[in-house]
Amino acid sequence: MNTTSSQPARVLLVDDSDAMLARASAVLSPNCVIVGAVKDGTAAIDAAKTLHPDVIVLDISMPGMTGLEVAANLREEGLTAAVVFLTVHDDEEVVLAARQAGGTGYVVKLRLASDLNVAVQEARAGRSFVSTLH
């Protein structure tokens, strides 16, 4: 990953909300290349396979597969993209579950504006990031 650190990170956005996708895209686009934006887990897996993003920004609460399940599936498929979870859950247990599912970053949507860029960069560098809320 370090070899590509000079390049802007290739990011895949996954969220069932168009508005949220737009905000995330707006926040990330100055520093990253948004390779795709999809609205459900299945589409996310397909996109990950074809687009080979460096980082996947993945909403946890979605209809169909949850973000956690998508992450687990990606690992099973052997895809190595770093996963930054994006969620409204401000909850330690969910953070723990997200880690176990293979997430590198954990950004609470309320902190999207301030934290997402940091989390993506950290994730690309192989480091963990968790939004601090309290």
Binding site: S17, A19, M20, R23, V27, V88, K109, L110, L112, A113
Partner: peptide, 8 residues
């Protein structure tokens, strides 16, 4: 979600 968007 809506409120999060508002905050963002």
């Amino acid at each position: 979600q809506q409120l999060s968007l508002l905050v963002i």
